[in-house]
Write a protein that binds this DNA or RNA. Sequence first.
DNA 1: CCGTATCCATTGCGATACTG
DNA 2: CAGTATCGCAATGGATACGG
Lengths: 117, 117
Amino acid sequence: MKRDMFTCGLDAALAVIGGKWKPLIMFHLAHDTRRYGELKRAIGAVSHKMLIQQLKELEVDGLVHRVDHKEIPPRVDYSLTEFGQTLANALVPLCEWGTAHATEVSEMMTNREARTR
Amino acid sequence: MKRDMFTCGLDAALAVIGGKWKPLIMFHLAHDTRRYGELKRAIGAVSHKMLIQQLKELEVDGLVHRVDHKEIPPRVDYSLTEFGQTLANALVPLCEWGTAHATEVSEMMTNREARTR
DNA sequence: CCGTATCCATTGCGATACTG
DNA sequence: CAGTATCGCAATGGATACGG
């Protein structure tokens, strides 16, 4: 069915987007450049500390480009680098999978809660 | 903390394979069914507790199929369900990305260490 | 508005020991 | 060999306050 090439590029990929919020960040930057506040609102569930922290790591890793306009009030734009864009592309099938199976997944989550109690 | 809907498919996908070792497990089961011990050796860095735990979750979520042969000594086979296989397929591009950019990623990691110090 | 720093509760996870 | 249970430390991550 498939070839045995996966031992294991996945390791490398996970080292980069393994962070809890990184895939989401990548996703939201995939099409547009966004200001910090926009990202925060777009993701919502993430805390300020986490978002800043993960953005910083993505920046250091060369996936995200950060532009500080040095204005008052502050204005900072985030966007994907070319490199980051290639990774975002690799994330697309996963995103589509999630969309296609959203209902099944929702049921799972409720089952999990029932089990934990 | 309960969530009602997923803002993008990625949310749903992450809810399922968000666990630290789950993507690796999925990929090691993508081709063959494996015994517990085989998986443990294949992944290596994972601890016994973690592997059992994550396998259990994957099983409950209907991604992994578990067969206990009730033998002595114990023999338990793990494999992907049809559903699990669809998810494994969605992970392939990510795996390929990691393979293609393994060297860049390695450099990143060393840079990270330099930064932490 | 954007970013840093601190405190502190919660969790993650490894080590270890025990069962069938 | 496969799985469960417990203990305890280290990392995670949220809340809050402060500064440009």
